[in-house]
């Protein structure tokens, strides 16, 4: 009964999507599928044993990794703390440096166009460079250690933070600022009583967000010699000492989860 009704209804109602859209969507779908299949072919061509072999491998590897060696916690505690400290320092420095940059990259504050476009372009280029590439360059420049790692994190997070905060500044309600200026507030009063209260909660929230990103980035910086726990992880992998490596990975996992949880709670409380 219902079937008949449905088919009748279908005949009367026009199709939801016009034919042109359908053709377009199908073409896009097949192009994407084509690129996907080609990428899969390309990326798997160097693989020995093919896909099925890989799956069996995965289980044997998991056996190698487990159980993690709990004995090494004491030895890796120091580098782990160092990693977190790197992220804290880098985030703080980036948060301070970002203020002038964000103001320069905000359209409603920087009315001088060439300056605005220059800052924007520099920030855009900065954001295209992955953090580890920055770390590689800084390690080449300053030698192995914590300092190049911190520097890489600062530069990397500066790009993200300045962009996000400049967008916050652009979204500010300009009316309070005008009202203050009209009633005779000077520049500092206008900034302190009209701009800062509007931007500060967002600013803090974004800084915490970037701190999360920095924590995740800092654990791998050691792979290129830029300090932190990544260095130890890389060594242990080099020795094929998988239980130790797994312990480090588990510890990183726990730290990231805990910090992310705290940061999310703080950000929820702020906004």
């Amino acid at each position: 009964m219902t079937n008949e009704n449905n088919s009748l209804a279908e005949k009367k109602t026009p199709p939801i999507y016009p034919v042109k859209t359908k053709v377009q969507v199908s073409i896009i779908f097949f192009v994407i599928l084509g690129i996907y299949l080609f990428s899969m072919f390309w990326t798997q061509k160097e693989m020995v044993g093919g896909f099925s072999g890989a799956f069996e491998n995965m289980f044997t590897v998991m056996e190698k990794f487990f159980p993690p060696n709990f004995g090494v916690i004491g030895a890796i505690w120091g580098p782990l703390v160092e990693t977190i400290q790197m992220a804290i320092i880098a985030t703080t420095i980036a948060a301070i440096l970002t203020v002038p940059l964000a103001v320069l990259a905000a359209r409603n504050v920087t009315t001088f166009k060439p300056l605005y476009y220059t800052t924007r372009t520099v920030l855009n280029i900065l954001r295209t460079i992955p953090d580890l590439v920055l770390a590689v360059i800084f390690v080449g420049l300053f030698g192995i250690g914590l300092f190049p790692g911190i520097l890489a994190l600062v530069v990397f997070s500066l790009g993200i933070l300045a962009k996000l905060i400049s967008e916050t500044i652009e979204a500010v309600d300009m009316n309070p600022l005008e009202a203050m200026r009209a009633s005779g507030g000077n520049v500092y009063q206008v900034i302190w009583y009209a701009l800062v209260p509007q931007v500060l909660p967002q600013f803090t929230s974004l800084v915490l967000y970037v701190f999360e990103i920095n924590i995740r980035a800092s654990v791998v910086l050691g792979f290129v010699g830029a300090g932190g726990i990544g260095l130890i992880l890389n060594q242990q992998l080099g020795f094929y000492n998988y239980p130790n490596a797994m312990m480090i990975i588990v510890l990183i996992f726990a730290v990231v989860i805990i910090i992310e949880y705290i940061s999310t709670k703080l950000r929820e409380a702020l906004i």
Binding site: W42, T43, Q44, E46, M62, F65, V220, L233, I252
Partner: peptide, 18 residues
Amino acid sequence: PDLILAILFVVAVGPNAF
């Protein structure tokens, strides 16, 4: 982190793009 996942998969399927 992506790189940590990459380590696990490199050990599993070998050092290649897949």
